[in-house]
Amino acid sequence: MIRVEFLGPIQKDALELEINNLSELATILQETPEMREWLENSAIAVNDTLVSTLDFPLKDGDKVSMLPPVCGG
């Protein structure tokens, strides 16, 4: 099971999904209407490390985080 968390202003509860890579997550979220506005501008982290490829393999217990645009300070 993969836990998917939505950070900051994304108003969505965490998901628990049976997926094998980020590509499968992309397909699921692209079909979720309220997520469309966030997909273009959010970064993705797996186990708290930012990732840059959809091929990134996921294993049971991994945590995926979605990080929308930031503004500290």
């Binding site: 980020l22 997550l25 992309a26 979220l29 692209q30 997909l39 273009e40 501008n41 959010s42 970064a43 993705i44 930012l50 990732v51 840059s52 490829t53 959809l54 979605m66 990080l67 929308p68 645009p69 930031v70």
Partner: peptide, 9 residues
């Protein structure tokens, strides 16, 4: 947007 954003779009 953090560098690399839009991966899942």
């Amino acid at each position: 947007a953090i560098k690399g954003s839009g991966l899942l779009a």
